[in-house]
Amino acid sequence: MVSLRSWRDPLLVAISLVALWQVLHELAGDVAVTAPAPTLAHLWEMIGQARFLPHLRETGLAFLQALAIACGGGVLIGLVLGGHKLSGEVAEPILVGLYSIPKITLYPVILLLFGLGMPAKVAFGALHGIIPVVLFTMNAVRNVNRTYLRAGRAMRLTPLQTGWHILVPATLPEIFSGLRIGFSLTLLGTMLGELFASQRGLGFLLMTAIDLHDVKTILAIAVLISTFAIIANAALLAIDKRLHRGAAPEGAGKP
């Protein structure tokens, strides 16, 4: 019953969003908004076309590489900064500052550094995703309960055992929350990178469609990306909740 309930409300919202879409179409006409059904049919047709797949692959590859860099690099940097107190204190305001600047202004710099094409997209996506991962990992490491570590020392655990049996379970839930946010931002960054000065990928298709005022294609791609984002995020959120439920009861992990 519980699962039925948790599914029902989002489903209702999804249905009302589609209804709103239909109403917008009735109000604004085909020039601005195409109706849901033809748009989805168009999307289906596009996915079937051979010339669409290279673009999809390009975006997917760029996104996966950026995600790998953001997650791997972010966790690594976060572990170092969280483990060493002073460097963490030095770095945190810089990172928070970097997090809140409009990174799109830096895109030309990245284009100049990496050249046009895949590396620039990957770098831009990773730049978006890496900072929240670092911040969350850093906080996770800082908030590890000292009592656990003392208990580990009392039991004469080797450093490796300490890491595996204490640090990983204690920090995993929060790090995963960071990874979830990093995932969304990396996708946003990769897409933004493709919208500007790109020759391939979904972002490029979107830009071309905007220039041609091909509303059907614009909406089809927007729906494709949004659906992917929402489903991936819901899955990650479900894992996130599970991890947090398995973690220490509320307040116990805080010093």
Binding site: S6, D9, P10, L12, V13, A28, V31, A32, V33, F183, S184, L185, L187, L188, M191, L192, L195, G203, L206, I210, H213, V215, I218, L219, I221, A222, I225, S226, A229, I230, A232, N233, A234, L237
Partner: peptide, 26 residues
């Protein structure tokens, strides 16, 4: 709130700029 939560959580993954032409028309 229950209904909107998944959408709020996924919101920042959606490329908003795709909807810009629509906004221009409106």
């Amino acid at each position: 709130r229950r209904a909107f939560n998944p959408f709020l959580a996924a919101y920042y993954a959606i490329p908003h700029f795709a909807f810009y032409p629509l906004l221009i028309v409106i």
